[in-house]
Structure formats: C-alpha cells, structure tokens
C-alpha cells in the first residue's frame, strides 16, 4: 500500500497535526508499512459478516432526568490555558493566512 506525501499532508490536516517535510516522509513510510500488513484483511470476503462495534451488547442505558452535583464553572476552567468571564478563551476562529501554510 503506497502512501504518498500528499496523502500524509491531507490526513494530517484532518487530524489537526502539523508536520515538517522529514516527518511527512517518515509517516508516509510507516503508514505504508502498517497498511500493507493490514491490507490482508481488506482482501477477506466478509460480505455476510455483521460488523462488531462493541464487545458487550448493552442498549438504551437510561438514567432519571434529575439534577445532580457537577463541576462548578471555576473547577471546569481551572485547567484552561486561557479563560475569561466563565468561558474558555481561544485565538480568533477565522483562519489567518500563514506563510508556508
């Protein structure tokens, strides 16, 4: 399974990762090797087999819709890199054109 540098850049963008060229080359090789191994299962004829997402079948786990104690805003924000007025503060949301982006 050949993974190209462009594949790596595309997936890195989806995964919010930011690689330099050396990393792009290394991940192209590593992912190619691993997917080569995994491709054995891509070739199996399993059309009649149901997929399993979870090992134990539990359905409709309900709880009463009642108020319970929870974290205070101060506790929830205590670990925030930046906070303001009981909110998490982040840089501007609209993307800024960056050199090399």
């Amino acid at each position: 399974m050949a993974i190209t540098p462009d594949d790596v850049r595309h997936v890195a963008k989806l995964a919010r990762l930011d690689f330099d060229e050396a990393e792009v080359a290394r991940f192209a090789k590593d992912l190619g090797d691993i997917l080569e191994h995994a491709s054995k299962i891509a070739e199996l004829d399993l059309a009649d087999v149901e997929p399993t997402a979870h090992p134990i079948k539990l359905e409709n786990v309900w709880r009463p819709d009642e108020l319970r104690p929870s974290l205070t805003p101060e506790q929830a924000l205590a670990n925030a890199p930046a906070a303001e007025e009981q909110k998490f503060r982040v840089p501007r949301i609209l993307e800024v054109e960056e050199v090399g982006e």
């Binding site: 919010r16 670990n79 925030a80 890199p81 998490f88 982040v90 840089p91 501007r92 993307e95 960056e98």
Partner: peptide, 14 residues
Amino acid sequence: VRYGLRIDAADTTA
C-alpha cells in the same frame, strides 16, 4: 482549548 498544553498561534486552527 480546555486543559493542558497550548502553543499560541494567530488563529484557533493553527
């Protein structure tokens, strides 16, 4: 955003 490391940049995605 909510905890741990943050490396600042001009916008949130970066």
